[in-house]
Design a protein around this nucleic acid. Sequence first.
DNA 1: TGACTTAGTTGCTATCTGCAACTAAGATCC
DNA 2: GGATCTTAGTTGCAGATAGCAACTAAGTCA
Lengths: 249, 249
Amino acid sequence: MPNSPPFDRARFEQPSLTVDVVVFAMREAAINLLVIERGIPPFEGRWALPGGFVVPSETVERAAARELEEETGLTGVYLEQLYTFSAPDRDPRGRVVSVAHMALLPADRIDAVRGGSDARRAEWVAIPEAIEKVEPAGLPAPGARSRKKLDAREPHFAFDHDVIVATALARLRGKLESTTLAFQLLPEEFTLTEAQRVYEAILGRAIDKVTFRRRLTQLELVEETPRMRRGAHRPARLYRAAPRDSVWI
Amino acid sequence: MPNSPPFDRARFEQPSLTVDVVVFAMREAAINLLVIERGIPPFEGRWALPGGFVVPSETVERAAARELEEETGLTGVYLEQLYTFSAPDRDPRGRVVSVAHMALLPADRIDAVRGGSDARRAEWVAIPEAIEKVEPAGLPAPGARSRKKLDAREPHFAFDHDVIVATALARLRGKLESTTLAFQLLPEEFTLTEAQRVYEAILGRAIDKVTFRRRLTQLELVEETPRMRRGAHRPARLYRAAPRDSVWI
DNA sequence: TGACTTAGTTGCTATCTGCAACTAAGATCC
DNA sequence: GGATCTTAGTTGCAGATAGCAACTAAGTCA
């Protein structure tokens, strides 16, 4: 940063700065992803992430929240900055650096998503399995190296958005066990089984019921409510996330 | 990101893009930080992080490596992207968005640092204790909120570099227990006690010797060498980091 | 009424953790 | 050259934790 003379920013052309948002939500016991189908080239017909240009007066986080609202109507969701993607050739139209963000939407708000102001369609899709292979061994940031792209036969995503999604998924997994981030994907009140399904969907493996419940209650991550979830079988107690200063355990 | 019409990047002025690098190394059993004293306003006389502008043909990671080499002579060190800082007022001279990086230097290379090409002095300093307070409860990225700055009575750092350092420290701590990142701060060959000192310095608390050694050996994170470190007392076995695909455990 | 499904608990064992106390191998001092 | 000091490294144990199986509980549905 500016340890440099006066302020010769015009020495060379500066890249454009954009934001992209990976929105995750639980749908049908699986983790889903919000995409927008591109209507114009380049990458016409492919899935792209909500996002857009950063305007001069706002932070990138604010830009991500604004673009998310403009394109999907979502407000007040958990949003965190993820990683900055800057490969010179990531956009065929010119030099664009994008700061990717991750947003988590509670399952009961999944239908609150509406099309954007310019009438493009937002859509929930399951995470393509090939995404798993994009990630080199769960490592979030291997220095200057770039990630492997999705197989060309199944070109789901526009630009490098497959890599962005893979990075978001790795971040979500990594934070799952050391934070209470998972609660951001649940409604205000939820059963412990519902919470367990979220963990299982994200980690991609079964978790022992006893161990899971022990942890949540012993670490006081949840608190009982007087209410029950009634359904086809034995009613389940409803819990809510315990109030705490931070999402970290 | 580009879900937008043709490519109207000129709709508004785009910010300048820079990189900053937080370099950590162990020195005298404490974790130290590489700073450069600013010789000109703004923030004349304050500490600043190595860094500079991103040129059009390179990624931000490459820019960070290049600036680090230009200003300190360091090459081939562990470098990872950290976080992007974008508060509109973070640089009084204009809109500058900076992608911060974290670098880890092995203890035996600490004297390899030389002054920059423009003769500014690079210097190792202990982490100011006030940095701890900058971090709100160890949370790496609280959405759009900005962090508390260092107390104005002790204005160590230029720009928002205090916040960047606090973020880097939090990241290093967070990754310490789930990755083998700490080995990046050690020489090729090291004793288990030396490794323990690194963990203790970063975590800021004592670790049980038996537990520490058990973990390192049982998880096969280290392997014995035939050599010993000879010193004032009983010689200690030298180990090296076990070869693995990734830094994650 | 009985089978089925999901909710939630109990009890055991293997493993892991933190702590104290021990032994080992050098240097140093007299 | 032996007592003492310091750092290296091990042993042993008690309490906490995790994983697994089996159990009970409470509803629906035929």
